[in-house]
């Protein structure tokens, strides 16, 4: 069975790709992902803000209380600290790249215009086959219009595209007034891929301590409905490759996303829960389904149920809305 697909111009053996997660934080983890069948590896995200914060924190602790008292003008040894910048992450890219045969996609969350471009360039130089821009932030300023936010994202994309020669994917959250519009906008601006959707850690309230907590919740199967819809809607309408992520835990989910038009499906939560070897189950399930349904290849089925290609395109739009509305009316 031909499971191959192309994503960001990269020829992949299968459409199943582990998304950015702690699983690829170590070289061993990356190798195990490849061994389990990953067709590419998206490395864990490099957060520019976190690196900056770590530097500031280290500097604070190394200087706090110093030069205040004659007996203790400092409190830590004058030792050579290794890398406090991106070098550790870049070195990881180099090591993973040389240890695995599948394409390596670096993931980046920047905070400054210069940060986005310089980090992306360093990632390219470190050997990344593509870079995924992880637009992981929650606009909370009520005075900031949507246009400004979208424009900002576009500028980041253009700056990075101008700085590197490798493909660039954008990992987006779903919270745009018109997802289709922004997708087209980024597509036009040169995005090689759109990864739908980024899932943000959501805050919770600890009733015991009356504090806001931010613990990680792994995605649930229901989460896949949102990217499924938008991949179906966008498939064929944008040139950028579409990658599906969120809630993909079973081979059925992979198949649905491919039918909707995804070039690849990115998986994370299920691997954290069931282990890396679950990748094999996903692939096996995909093959079984394709064989059972007499498909020749992934490519053959890909997008066959996109909005353009289904009998009832409205099913991806208003039909469900109306149903919900009806339910709501009844309740009222």
């Amino acid at each position: 069975m031909d499971l191959s697909t192309t994503y960001l111009g990269l020829k992949l053996r299968t459409p199943i790709v582990p998304s950015a997660s702690p699983l690829s934080e170590t070289l061993d983890g990356a190798k195990r992902l490849e061994d389990a069948g990953a067709s590419a590896i998206v490395l864990s995200s490099v957060f520019e803000e976190q690196l900056a914060h770590e530097q500031l924190e280290m500097e604070h602790h190394l200087t706090h209380g110093t030069e205040s008292y004659a007996e203790a003008t400092s409190y830590f040894p004058d030792t050579q600290l290794g890398d406090l910048g991106p070098e550790t992450c870049l070195d990881h890219i180099r090591k993973v790249k040389s240890a695995v045969d599948v394409p390596v996609i670096a993931s980046l969350n920047g905070t400054t215009p210069g940060g986005w471009t310089s980090f992306a360039t360093w990632m390219e130089q470190a050997g990344a086959d593509a870079v995924e821009l992880n637009l992981y932030n929650i606009p909370t300023d009520p005075d900031q219009p949507a246009e400004e936010i979208e424009k900002g994202y576009e500028e980041i994309l253009c700056a990075v595209k101008g700085a590197v020669n490798i493909p660039v994917a954008l990992k987006l959250g779903p919270f745009f007034t018109n997802m289709g519009h922004v997708a087209k906008r980024f597509d036009k601006a040169g995005a090689d891929g759109l990864v739908l959707f980024n899932r943000f850690y959501q805050p919770d309230i600890d009733l015991e301590e009356l504090e806001v907590v931010s613990n990680v919740l792994l995605s649930t199967p229901q989460a896949m409905r949102l990217p499924l819809r938008w991949i179906a809607i966008l498939s064929g309408r944008v040139e950028a490759d579409l990658a599906a992520t969120s809630g993909i835990g079973h081979s059925c989910d992979v198949i649905k996303m491919l039918l909707a038009g995804a070039k690849v499906t990115q998986v994370c939560s299920v691997l954290l829960k069931a282990g890396i070897d679950h990748l094999r189950q996903l692939e096996l399930g995909l093959v079984e389904w394709l064989e059972e349904n007499e498909y020749e290849s992934v490519e053959q089925m890909r997008g066959s149920m996109s909005q353009r290609n289904v009998a009832d395109p409205a099913a991806f739009e208003r039909a469900q809305y109306m149903k919900a509305l009806r339910t709501f009316s009844v309740m009222v």
């Binding site: 690196l51 900056a52 530097q55 500031l56 280290m58 500097e59 600290l81 406090l84």
Partner: peptide, 12 residues
Amino acid sequence: TYGAKGDEIVKM
């Protein structure tokens, strides 16, 4: 002085 402590410290 700060080069080894990170770009952010230098920039600051």
